[in-house]
């Protein structure tokens, strides 16, 4: 068994008097695709934000290759390779598509030829994005924005890519496409932490999964096992 890339120990998140995440333990190992499932309001986004350094009132441990990242500024967590695609994708709608992608390259520091090569490689994967480079992101469709978000995330060279409900608000065909892409990114060796309400498709591509209910982890295990679990089936897979 390989050592954990990311390990959450007794992670808690509060918003004033409300405790949204109530002491969870979670592990992502190198190369794994982990699904974090749960209904609306379960605390999934809070978990990701605590990892990314966006939650002021988080406690416990966020161990990244054994080092506690909790309390560090968001930019240094990002610099360590923990990249989050937030709920709603976090595309800057007033910026051009190119600028949105370039922001990822800026974060690497002066890169020159290396950055250019990475840019071309990623665009090869997303030809639709390549066509829209000069356009303002606000003019793109939801599906196109999804592609931009994934392309930008990849340009950030994530060691762990965290996605917050990437299927939200997409037509079924695009949802299908998104999960295929995620599977492909996973297959190429990137570790993923995938937050989803869409349990069926998430479980289909995940190695392991956790189920979060009102801030507590209630179930966890290999994706194939969870997909058969009657509790998961009745609550998340619609019987």
């Amino acid at each position: 068994m390989s050592a954990a890339l990311l390990e959450l120990r007794d992670l808690r998140v509060r918003y004033g008097p409300v405790e949204a995440v109530r002491g969870i333990h979670l592990e992502v190992r190198e190369g794994e695709l982990i699904a974090l499932l749960g209904a609306n309001g379960a605390g999934k986004t809070s978990v990701l934000n605590a990892i990314s350094g966006l939650c002021a009132q988080a406690s416990g441990k966020v161990l990244w290759q054994g080092i506690d990242m909790l309390g560090r500024p968001a930019e240094s967590i990002f610099a360590a390779g923990l990249v989050q695609v937030p709920e709603g994708r976090g595309i800057f709608l007033s910026l051009s598509v190119r600028d949105n992608l370039m922001l990822a390259l800026d974060a690497r520091g002066p890169s020159g030829a290396d950055g250019k090569r990475a840019f071309d490689e990623v665009l090869a994967v997303f030809p639709r994005v390549a066509e829209r480079l000069a356009q303002r992101a606000g003019e793109l469709s939801g599906g196109e924005l999804q592609m931009v978000a994934l392309a930008r995330a990849l340009l950030c060279r994530p060691r762990l890519l965290m996605l917050d409900e990437p299927s939200m608000g997409l037509a079924p065909i695009l949802v299908q496409q998104t999960f295929e892409l995620l599977a492909r990114i996973h297959a190429e060796g990137t570790s993923l932490l995938l937050v989803e309400q869409n349990a069926r498709q998430a479980l289909a591509i995940a190695d392991r999964a956790y189920v979060l209910e009102t801030g507590n982890l209630t179930l966890s295990g290999p994706a194939t096992v969870l997909a058969q679990d009657p509790r998961v089936v009745s609550a998340y897979l619609g019987g």
Partner: peptide
Amino acid sequence: RQLRAVAESPRHARLLGI
């Protein structure tokens, strides 16, 4: 570019290491 990104959403800008 970074200034404009921050203008639109400081939170999302932080997620890109700005």
